[in-house]
């Protein structure tokens, strides 16, 4: 055990990468839930599509990168394409599935979300086959690049992932707390009918929320490919579940909560894998989650549920 503690700092660094990705996914869940009280279970699949868009762009750019196109330009192209593509996909899903179901039975949108998840999984399966595909991240930056910080080794890829994730989070909080659109978004979350009466264009803001959350998931898909270098059509299932868990842990609907929940979950996963065993890591992580929710049922940053009149 003493031996395990000596590499705890490294496990924290590993967990931070994982956590940053979970946080990006969790934010999408929380944004949509905060506005619509809808659990968007297709979110993990949007993330998977983002990873595939990143894979596709990288494959297209492969010759250009080999010929000397700088890696950061390639990465920017991957991120932009995935965020744009996923944003569009999110808006489309909202328009075609969630909006028609919004004022029906409570469970209808949830089932719609599960249905969309299957459509996306199998759509990608048909288009790209079930083969696991490799992201050749070394085209963007060499895997061995990095530096030592005491006993901790930080690879450039991980630093980049954490950095970009933090940047996106900062941009999001500016958008939500400092812009007109953000105010409208929060207003709808507080009371959609009152917001509509006060002239907030509800449908448009809801669409924008989906674009935003899905774009973050797309970015997460690209970033995860840089470190874990593999994409396949079912990769969104586990990631979506972890993102959802992070959102619940942080208090679903709360943006700082999603960030903290994601980081905590990532670190808990890495430390339990590193100190105990990968076989039990999910057991430990979800065990901790259950205990945490027993102590704080509405999550770390969650508000107590208010009875709606």
């Amino acid at each position: 055990m003493g031996d395990s503690l000596s590499h705890l700092p490294q496990q924290l660094a590993n967990g931070l990468t994982l956590g940053a990705v979970y946080a990006l996914i969790a934010l999408g869940y929380s944004l949509v839930y905060g506005v619509l009280r809808l659990l968007n279970f297709a979110h993990g699949e949007v993330y998977m599509v983002g990873a595939f868009i990143g894979y596709g762009v990288l494959s297209l750019l492969d010759p250009a990168l080999a010929a000397g196109l700088p890696g950061w330009l390639g990465l920017t192209a991957m991120l932009l394409a995935a965020m744009l593509g996923c944003g569009l996909l999110g808006a489309l899903i909202e328009r075609l599935v969630y909006r028609p179901l919004r004022h029906t039975h409570r469970l209808a949108p949830l089932l719609g979300a599960l249905g969309i998840a299957f459509v996306l999984q199998h759509g990608v399966l048909l288009l790209a086959s079930a083969r696991h595909r490799a992201i050749h991240a070394e085209l963007i930056l060499p895997a061995a690049l990095g530096f030592e910080l005491g006993s901790v080794r930080l690879s450039a890829a991980r630093l980049l992932v954490i950095g970009i994730a933090l940047l996106l989070l900062a941009a999001l909080s500016l958008l939500v707390y400092r812009t007109r659109m953000g105010r409208a978004l929060r207003a709808i979350g507080a009371d959609p009918e009152a917001a509509a009466m006060l002239g907030v264009p509800v449908e448009r803001v809801v669409s924008q929320t989906f674009v935003l959350g899905s774009a973050l998931a797309g970015a997460a898909g690209v970033l995860v490919g840089l470190v874990f270098t593999k994409v396949w059509h079912l990769m969104g299932v586990a990631a979506g579940l972890k993102g959802f868990t992070a959102a619940v842990l942080g208090g679903i609907g709360s943006l700082p909560g999603a960030l903290l929940g994601g980081l905590l979950l990532g670190i808990a996963e890495s430390v339990s894998t590193g100190v105990i065993s990968p076989t039990y890591s999910d057991l430990i992580v979800f065990g901790v989650l259950i205990v945490a929710l027993l102590v704080r049922p509405s999550g770390l940053f969650g508000k107590r549920a208010q009875p709606k009149v």
Binding site: Q10, Q11, L234, P278
Partner: peptide, 21 residues
């Protein structure tokens, strides 16, 4: 001895222990 599922993509926590070992 370690055991990981076939869908696992993150080996970094294991590799960290490996590095120490």
């Amino acid at each position: 001895r370690e055991s990981v599922g076939q869908d696992e993509t993150d080996f970094s926590a294991l590799v960290t222990r490996m590095r120490a070992d």
